[in-house]
């Protein structure tokens, strides 16, 4: 969808999509699909469900495009839709099965560091990833939104439909469990 090698910015694509230009919307999907999928994966810890959530979020965004007034960035807006879609999806799923752990979920390692640091970082990230997966969904969502994406407690409470106090409690419990999972073996050896 680029013209003359210059990629249209999100604002231009949004205006075109809001006029019904499906190709412009597809370009927005192409640009943002990785970050949307990554957020969905962190929230759900399940690759298949994350792909479903990402698709659902983009379709919801398309249907709601006329309501988007541009007072936030498209990426911020779509992230909020992902959170709502993941929350809805997870609640539906939890009625049918227990909290699963997707063994294939792994965080890629940044490529701009030395092999030794990369290995160390991968080990740390691997342990953190497992600890995150072990968290209950209710705590994981709050930890991801607050500590990874920097949302405020107010934003979290608004989008999850919980009180600020509940968000704080879930964050506190989530961090506490992560700390225990990450360092309990070190303490046991000491």
């Amino acid at each position: 969808m680029t013209q003359g090698g210059v990629r249209p910015d999100d604002g231009t694509l949004l205006l075109r999509a809001q006029s019904g230009d499906r190709a412009a919307f597809s370009e927005l999907v192409r640009i943002h699909q990785d970050e949307v999928y990554t957020l969905a994966l962190r929230l759900t810890a399940d690759r298949e469900m994350a792909a479903d959530v990402a698709q659902e979020a983009f379709v919801r965004a398309w249907r709601a495009l006329s309501k988007f007034r541009g007072d936030a960035k498209f990426s911020t807006w779509i992230h909020r839709i992902v959170v709502n879609a993941a929350w809805t999806q997870r609640r539906k799923e939890s009625r049918h099965r227990a909290d699963p752990i997707d063994e294939s979920f792994s965080e890629p390692v940044s490529e701009s560091i030395s092999p030794e640091r990369a290995a160390e970082s991968a080990a740390m990230q691997g342990r953190l990833r497992q600890a995150m997966e072990a968290l209950p969904m209710s705590a994981r969502v709050v930890v991801v939104l607050k500590d990874v994406y920097g949302w405020s407690h107010g934003e979290i409470s608004e989008h999850l439909g919980i009180t600020v106090a509940a968000a704080k409690v879930r964050l506190h419990r989530g961090r506490k469990q992560l700390r225990t999972d990450l360092w309990s073996d070190v303490e046991a050896r000491a």
Partner: peptide
């Protein structure tokens, strides 16, 4: 956790 924000997983 904050460092995870820079890591993007391909869809």
């Amino acid at each position: 956790l904050a460092a995870m924000a820079d890591i993007v997983e391909p869809a």
